[in-house]
Design a protein around this nucleic acid. Structure first.
Lengths: 257, 257
DNA sequence: CCATCTTTGTGCACGCGTTCACAAAGACAT
DNA sequence: ATGTCTTTGTGAACGCGTGCACAAAGATGG
């Protein structure tokens, strides 16, 4: 019916706030770095600084997981790494498929951060027959026709879409039909999915646009002390310059072929 | 002093809430699609569906920009495209540099969504001398030694970092010193920047970890009705299996060389 | 010119997330 | 054993974001 709900349906999974869940990977990364330097314990203040957050926030976040700290000392690094990993579900193996092997898809396939977190690239899939068999990051690309079989055979529940925008919804539908229940979408489109399927979206150009907004404000503020921003007269409604818009519209990150 | 503040310092720029700013690009994308189909007007309900948000939220978002709608009719598509573009600062030219031309950097350089939004890739920069001169997306890669000169000559205020984690902070420092005040960071590190510099972070593995969390919950819930999750006994503090951790740590998305 | 109908713009209430500030807990030295 | 000092864990207050629900505005038809 309605367009897919990309948002968290106020899941509040088992009492752990969504905002906290989103920060756990951050803590985990900082802790892993400490672990590699063989640091035995860390205080909330130090860890918060390393993760780039407020220490009170960090302590409250950890309080949702349990009382894993020792007052007067701090947190045991190894122990906390394990607890967070377990909470995030990283102690188990997550086979993922990447659909759309362009530049971005290849970058994802080569991304070392996946394997070290329990994510295993089970397959690379592309619609271009010419790519079939070509190894990318040591994994041969398979044709899109095999999608359902691959998902089914490997028990894949997480799919990554790095296709052009035009193909994303179709790929999404097939992934979901084949049993995928979590999707990471890099294509610049709103995906429509049934209830029970999670979608997270990463949009490269949106981030830049947000930066541009703040950048514009900075420039505007130091130029004039005032606030009114009205450089050029706004085109009197329905301006006729729809030509400059360009036909590229929403060209996605990479070519699928 | 403290680690870089990646977060919005409650800017609340000129009355427009940060959450609204983050959604404007979404609306803009939907509106652009409508514009290309020559749709003259659109209601808040329709546009909200296309953007994947609640219609009340959309109306409230637009109310921060001004009264651009017509009651009983809806919004003029072209007019709204212009207003949002102007608010986001997309009516002006934003030269950006991309530092670190691996798979990800190349994907970004090829990303069509940039050019169509007023972003112009002014230069591609990489630390590998062997890459200098090699064209990527039609733009010759320049050596990192030229970074300061490039930023200065082109008046670049937005930088994109797609280097390995180890090089990110150093690149960031040089960009900032050269005059960049907004940074989009793809390297898995917390960047430390002085006040006045905005940093936005895109982390590929964090998104997957969040998905894994929810995926684990789904699996756990349909298996058992209960809530307690305690599959394996937690290793009695400071477990000795720090060997499985692997030396890859936080290998970044792409090779710089 | 008036009635009706559609759709915007927003006042209000609610809930989540953040931050402060402090009491409780434990380590450590004497 | 006792006191001091550090650091956690959390109660409480606050502010932002979201969604409801409705009045105002304007289009449209008679």
């Amino acid at each position: 019916m309605a367009t897919g709900r990309t948002h968290r349906p106020a899941t509040r999974s088992r009492g752990i706030p969504e905002a906290t869940v989103a920060r756990l990977p951050l803590y985990l990364r900082a802790l892993t770095a400490l672990s590699e330097r063989s640091v035995p314990t860390v205080s909330s203040e130090e860890l918060a600084a390393a993760a780039g957050v407020n220490s009170a926030k960090l302590r409250k976040d950890f309080s949702y997981l349990g009382s894993y700290g020792t007052r007067g000392v701090g947190y045991d690094v190894e122990y906390l790494v394990y607890q967070i990993s377990r909470e995030l579900g990283l102690t188990q193996d997550w086979p993922v498929v990447i659909v759309g092997i362009g530049n971005l898809g290849a970058a994802l396939a080569n991304y070392g951060g996946f394997a070290s977190r329990g994510f295993r690239v089970a397959a690379l899939i592309d619609a271009d027959p010419a790519m079939a068999g070509t190894p990318v990051a040591g994994i041969p690309v398979q044709h899109a026709d095999e999608l359902e079989k691959i998902v089914s055979d490997n028990g894949v529940s997480i799919g990554v879409i790095s296709t052009p925008a035009g193909a994303a919804q179709q790929v999404c539908d097939r992934l979901v039909a084949a049993g995928v229940t979590s999707i990471l979408n890099f294509a610049p489109t709103v995906l429509s999915v049934p209830d029970g399927v999670d979608v997270r979206k990463v949009d490269l150009s949106i981030e830049l646009q947000i930066l541009a907004f703040h950048e514009q404000r900075k420039a505007g503020e130091e130029a004039v002390g005032g606030s009114s921003v009205d450089p050029a007269a706004p085109p009197v409604r329905a301006a006729t310059d729809s030509s400059r818009k360009g036909p590229d519209g929403d060209v996605p990150a990479v070519m699928p072929a």
